[in-house]
Nucleic acid binder design. Structure first.
Length: 329
DNA sequence: TAGGCCATCTGGTCCT
DNA sequence: AGGACCAGATGGCCTA
């Protein structure tokens, strides 16, 4: 329930005089601006009982009018308790900020691998997620059908459920011809995993440099590396680390692009499917870690992904199952 | 000016 | 006990 402070300026003075706001830049800024948001003030009336006798009286008066509170009586806020509480709250706030920053970083990584990444026109969080969903869906369709959709229908797939402005952005990006999508991506601030990738022999190094040109060629060229980056963006860092700090150790690509691309459907002779973009990626393959090969499940079957790269430097947490999860969605 | 988006703080819940 | 995660609340900023 919302707890608001009726006297932000008093609270600000009180709080700042006790020095705990020094650790809360955000809160401090708010105080300067006379911001009276729920923020750090919500708790203060209760916290300041001890320190402001006038307010205490006020509260007692109010309590006299209200029905008595049920439940265990609140422990009295001793100075020590107050200090501990504040320290805890400050720490929790900092953690929450960090957590949200990590979330935002992850979203930024996701934005970068979207087919219409624009530095100037940033997709909102919700639109980024929607576009990502559509993008995965579109790529899955390509894998399942083995057909590259024509430019228009690909755009339509991507724009499903998106707002008009975002749809325009996507359509514009995919239809304006040469788009320095990946160039831009690499030139700017390469994600940690991306720069780490440079040391490995991932296939698309030998491809024509972006910009890729026509819509068709974009569709063809875009997918594998973009998909790779997408997965990396999602799983590139340690899964338990929500703040996704730059990973500086050996790279752990859940899926790499190198060697011969071949998707085999288990137990079927004509397993080898020819994918349109294979022509453009003669050396494309999906590979897992552990040196045991990897596989993923799609709605059309189980795919064996041969290992044809060396994994000496790969960490053990591969994303074979995670990749499978993507296709099972 | 309304509405969308965002960052931040907060308290509750769950988990280790 | 403490951390992670979550949803609610709030105010700031921006744009149509």
């Amino acid at each position: 329930m919302p707890q608001t402070c009726s006297k932000p300026s008093d609270m600000a003075e009180l709080v700042s005089s006790q020095g705990w706001m020094d650790e809360m830049p955000g809160a401090k800024a708010e105080l300067k601006e006379g911001n009276s948001r729920t923020g750090p003030f919500g708790l203060l009336p209760a916290l300041t009982e001890e320190h402001d006798s006038a307010e205490e009286e006020e509260e007692e008066e109010e309590e006299g009018e209200k029905p008595k509170r049920r439940g265990p009586k609140k422990k009295k806020m001793t100075k020590a308790r107050l200090e501990r509480f504040r320290a805890r709250r400050v720490k929790a706030n900092a953690r929450e900020r960090t957590r949200m920053h990590g979330l935002n970083d992850a979203l930024d990584n996701l934005r970068r691998v979207m087919p219409c990444y624009s530095k100037t026109q940033k997709l909102s969080k919700i639109e980024t997620l929607r576009l990502a969903r559509n993008y995965i869906w579109a790529l899955s369709e390509v894998l399942e059908t083995g057909q590259t959709p024509e430019g228009k229908s690909f755009v339509e797939m991507l724009c499903k459920g998106l707002s008009q402005p975002t749809s325009n952005l996507v359509a514009g990006c995919l239809q304006l011809g040469p788009q320095p999508l990946f160039l831009e991506k690499h030139e700017e601030k390469p994600p940690a995993c991306e720069s780490a990738l440079a040391g490995h022999s991932f296939g698309y190094q030998g491809l024509p440099s972006p910009p890729y040109g026509s819509v068709e060629s974009q569709l063809l060229h875009l997918k594998p590396p973009a998909f790779k980056s997408l997965v990396e963006a999602s799983f590139g860092s340690h899964p338990s680390d929500c703040s996704t700090p730059p990973y500086e150790g050996p790279l752990t690509p859940p899926l790499s692009i190198s060697g011969n691309f071949s998707l085999k459907q288990e137990g079927s002779p004509e397993l080898e499917k020819s994918y349109p973009f294979m022509a453009h990626y003669p050396s494309l393959s999906l590979a897992g870690a552990h040196g045991h090969g990897s596989h993923f499940q799609s709605s059309v079957g189980r795919y064996e992904i041969p290992l044809d790269v060396s994994y000496e430097s790969f960490a053990p947490h591969a994303a074979g199952p995670q990749l499978g999860a993507i296709f099972n969605e």
